[in-house]
Design a protein around this nucleic acid. Sequence first.
RNA 1: GCGGCGGUAGUCUAGCUGGUUAGGACAUGAGCUUGCCAAGCUCAUAGCGCGGGUUCGAAUCCCGCCCGUCGCACCA
Length: 496
Amino acid sequence: MASYEDVMSLSVRRGFLWPAVDLYGGFAGFYDYGHNGTLLRRHWEEVWLEHFLGLNDNYYLIDTSTILPEPPLKASGHVDHFTDLLVTCTRCGESHRADHLLEAATHVEHEGLSSSEVDAKIREAGIRCPKCKGELGASRPFNMMFPLAVGPTGKDAAFLRPETAQGAFLNFRREFEALRRRLPMGLAIVGRAYRNEISPRQGTYRMREFLQAELQIFFDPVVFADQVPTASVADVPVRLCWAAEKNEPTAHDLTSKELVARGLPTWYVYHLVQVQRFYLEVLGIPREHFRFAELDAKERAFYNKIHFDVQVRQESLGGFKEVGGVHYRTDHDLAGHEAGSRQKQAVTVATTRLVPHVLELSFGVDRNVWALLDLDYTPGERATLHLPPRLAPIGVAVFPLVNKDGLPERAEALYGLLRKRFTAFFDDAGSIGKRYARMDEIGTAFCVTVDHETLEGKGVTLRDRDTQKQVRVPEGDLPARLESLLSGEARFEPAA
RNA sequence: GCGGCGGUAGUCUAGCUGGUUAGGACAUGAGCUUGCCAAGCUCAUAGCGCGGGUUCGAAUCCCGCCCGUCGCACCA
């Protein structure tokens, strides 16, 4: 666990991440990744893809446009739901959401009203500022999406995509054909999304440009439960809290069976287990720092029927914070695009004709990287980033014990060999202890040192980050040994 | 967006009741050392967020902006 200051200091000093454009004073809501941050993030993406595409043979990665014209975003609901009309009090300057004020005063929902209609209704109902009773000014639209002018006239409205998900829905029909009409079908996208956040804060937690990793699973709700091995997870405890407990730092363990008994679909619970496995086993998040958090109907997005957030407790962000979500979007998206595009989205599988439903596994990549930095970093005398070996920016570092007697040349030759298979790093500056310390702080799990015994054919030393223990390994065995250590197949055994 | 607090080398910080060659620690680079965990010595690099104002003189006082942070609002 590390404080916000510790995470930022490490990130800046060691080339993980920092505020974008800080040369010019910074640009709120945007962060850049340095060389180590980029490697860490890429490794996170690799294990994410491996884990989630591995859930089914029919799950694939695609890549789609980050700019979308208005019609699909109208159909998805973003144009209407993503735009709020704000009214500002002429006396105290406080801004309020017009629809909230109207709803509070008239107890009627007011959706999709224009700015002038809202102004008329506010006057009609005689609504004043709830804070100071001052007179309210004219309403103005605030859209969380970034508008763009595309083409020479810029007449056709377009936006930077507010989520990657739409790319999967827009390409559903094409991929369904290309993948030979099978369900379930999974389309994953790892890419950037953009939201004009009112107040971006807390490092990479809330940004205006961010990376999402999402898997949209298209399925037939009638048969999906029989298509996933739900029995295999029946007794697995799932760590979660209910909507009413979300503000408490608590969590319970309920088995999959119990969750199903409470009314969650078996296929939904199965995916909760798979997401939990990713966090606990692949990312190595301590169990007590992980939970799912239920969202009630009021908090859920308009399209979600069942929604649990994935949360990781972080000291730097002050508690459990959302890093992902498991959303049952029903047929909302495909049905919406069917209406918007007037193109049929229903498909026939075997004898059933249906508009597939969608289960969305959605993750904020930057938030995940931040969570790893928070949880895995222990600052102090022996500052160490305890990343899972595979995720570390550098897989293996190679050092000569001293800079004489031909050791540097020998070490460099070994480095040249290893770098073809691993993310390797060579260093001959300063003392050996300092080099180990530097590697500890960026999470390098294994360091290889060439010493005088190496020259006598007695192999090299292999050092483990977390125990600081060493073993001698014949140079020829090194690649295979590192391979199994980095993949997690083998553990470092000082006695071996 | 509103209000409180803040912004000094890469990092952490002293200085902030105006006058300092803006100090330190760590980090970084070069060299000498170095025989396994941030050792030592020598030298070096590098800073007052941006802009304006007050003043003989501004890191220091005032204003605007930017950025950060906490609270409110927002987070479909």
